[in-house]
Design a protein around this nucleic acid. Sequence first.
DNA 1: CTGAATCCTCTGCGATACTG
DNA 2: CAGTATCGCAGAGGATTCAG
Lengths: 116, 116
Amino acid sequence: MQCNNFEQAYKKEMRAVQDSMDVLYGKWKISIISSICYYNKRRFSDILGDIDGISNKMLSKELKELEINQLIKRTVLDTQPVTVQYELTAHGKSLQTIINNLTDWGIKHRKVITGK
Amino acid sequence: MQCNNFEQAYKKEMRAVQDSMDVLYGKWKISIISSICYYNKRRFSDILGDIDGISNKMLSKELKELEINQLIKRTVLDTQPVTVQYELTAHGKSLQTIINNLTDWGIKHRKVITGK
DNA sequence: CTGAATCCTCTGCGATACTG
DNA sequence: CAGTATCGCAGAGGATTCAG
């Protein structure tokens, strides 16, 4: 009984982690979120410049996925020619903690691997 | 000047996040770490059973990568037939926070998407 | 400027079978 | 039991071009 509860809680947590990873999966997702987050509002071509190596195809694709997952908001500005602005939703902003943690851990990890 | 410092800090953080993601990337990495973490010590076939859908090939491959990144420790037990035990290193354990955050966020995310 | 469309390559990953 | 070897495919992702 104890054991069953334990098992169930475990499965549930596993699923939750997977849910998160599904959203964050993709070679550039985190970079994109970080970029928008840093600048608050950011245009397509700006992000394209921020991230080294990304192609417009991938940026477009991953932005779309992030929008579907309601992490970012897309606004078409009535300029000539048209520009598009991206910003984080409240839900997207709630990823901040995780990104910060990943940043810290990444720095620590580099030290561990490269031999303190 | 202000701007340059800002830019540099930004690039540095981006790289750190990417470092983390490189390690955690792979369809099963997080699940594997979670499994070992929950049970403290875990054998190959146990993990194989814990994670739904994983193949022995992938488990073997990702375990190897995790070991290279010094997140887990592999111990061959002198039994008949041979069994192998995996456990988290101190460095691997330091991922706990991130995994917990991901779990929490995943639960929240599901609520947001499925419409509160 | 912001994408969508096309083409093409490479690899992540599954299924299965085999070894010490 | 704990892997390694082989085969095969779908999809990720790059380069380039086209369109509103």
